[in-house]
């Protein structure tokens, strides 16, 4: 799980163009939206694309997004349980 979290942090930095940031700067348990990384709705779309592109996960239920994208850790847990690649 910890390895997946670190990999995911790197992918988030690349997908969201956080040029100044390193994986160590991201708290795996901090909120992704609002506070924490302060992501917005366009970033949410990028994260949905990331799940599809890197892990073969298509989010069928948009309502589930709130729980999945709560933090890097909740994303990693969802990926581990649902990845197809």
């Amino acid at each position: 799980m910890e390895q997946l979290i670190e990999q995911l942090k790197g992918q988030i930095i690349e997908a969201l163009n956080f040029e100044e940031m390193t994986p160590a700067d991201i708290d795996a348990d901090a909120p992704l939206f609002g506070e924490g990384l302060g992501l917005d709705s366009i970033d949410a779309l990028e994260l949905i694309m990331l799940l599809d592109r890197e892990y073969g996960i298509k989010l069928a239920d948009p309502k589930a997004g709130k729980a999945i994208f709560r933090s890097v850790r909740t994303m990693a847990e969802y990926i581990q349980a649902n990845r197809t690649k």
Partner: peptide, 9 residues
């Protein structure tokens, strides 16, 4: 085919 929302805007 993975269009980028961040680029699209």
């Amino acid at each position: 085919y993975y269009p980028s929302p961040a680029l699209f805007v």
